[in-house]
């Protein structure tokens, strides 16, 4: 696995006439798992789309290995950075293996079609995600959890050193959420893939992130290892939630225990 440097400098992103992310600097740590958290509409998905070259910067730039991604060829970026968007569309009647195979697009030329390399990548991706047994099934016949694993398999078949995932655990029950994050950790540890995930669940984020980025109103509030940055003040600032932070009994990472208005038996720590 070659090491890569993906960073944003003075990055401003937006839609129509609204700036969502403004003048933001960030560097994605190479070979680590980075998780971006924040309240709804804080700009975390927008940042991810910007990093993946889906949005043109209003100002500043996203740099991949020192070059602005907007100046690189799309397929060249796509050989290094893969993206699983929030709402991909499964074409009518398509089978699992066929869909995963579409991830090979950047590796094929206008005339160079399917190759043994493509076969190998698809097979490896389906094996890694445990979807090989589903290969011939149509997507429409799968459960939500299976479907999400197929999409991850497609992103893996793209065989990039960096994989960006936008809320990959949506629609999944807790078992499948953990399974998916374990899978991404496997990929990171065994193959050194750099992984960036936008995640809703703060506790899973703390457990699985090597590097945590907390965002609010289009800016980064704090970033670093979860145990270094997570405290009650941060949670209150970013999510507007009063909470206690205790060590996760399983992993030892910070665990955020919300204090609601009811069922509060102990005074704030």
């Amino acid at each position: 696995m070659t090491s890569h440097d993906l960073r944003a400098e003075d990055l401003t992103l937006g839609y129509a006439d609204v700036d969502i992310v403004s003048h933001l600097d960030v560097q994605v740590p190479d070979g680590r798992i980075t998780v971006i958290v924040g309240a709804n509409a804080c700009g975390k998905s927008t940042l991810l789309r910007g990093l993946a070259r889906l949005l043109k910067p209003r100002s500043g730039a996203v740099l991949l290995d020192g070059k602005a991604v907007q100046d690189l060829r799309s397929v060249d970026v796509a050989k290094v950075v893969g993206l699983l968007p929030q709402t991909p569309v499964a074409p009518d009647g398509i089978t699992v293996a066929d869909l995963v195979g579409r991830g090979r697009y950047p590796h094929q030329g206008f005339f160079r079609r399917w190759s043994p390399e493509d076969d190998a990548a698809v097979e490896a991706a389906m094996e890694a995600t445990g979807t090989a047994d589903l290969a011939e099934r149509p997507i429409s016949a799968l459960s939500g959890g299976q479907r999400q694993r197929v999409w991850v398999a497609m992103a893996l078949a793209q065989d990039t050193d960096l994989v960006l995932l936008d809320e990959p655990t949506t629609y999944l029950d807790i078992t499948h959420q953990v399974e998916l994050l374990d899978l991404l950790t496997d990929l990171n540890r065994a193959h050194g893939k750099t992984i960036v995930i936008v995640l809703h669940d703060l506790n899973l984020a703390c457990r699985y992130a090597d590097h945590l980025i907390a965002m609010k109103s289009g800016a980064i509030v704090r970033e670093g290892a979860p145990q270094d940055i997570i405290d009650a003040d941060l949670v209150s600032d970013v999510f507007g939630l009063s909470s206690d932070i205790v060590p996760d009994p399983v992993s030892g990472t910070p665990m955020v225990v919300p204090r609601g208005r009811h069922h509060v038996a102990t005074p704030a720590l």
Binding site: S74, G82, T87, V89, G103, Q158
Partner: peptide, 19 residues
């Protein structure tokens, strides 16, 4: 081939390097 990628949605297609 391009069509097969476009039908996955614009975001996914761009992520796969399609203009």
């Amino acid at each position: 081939r391009q069509l097969g990628v476009i039908e996955l949605g614009d975001d996914a297609a761009q992520g796969l390097g399609l203009r």
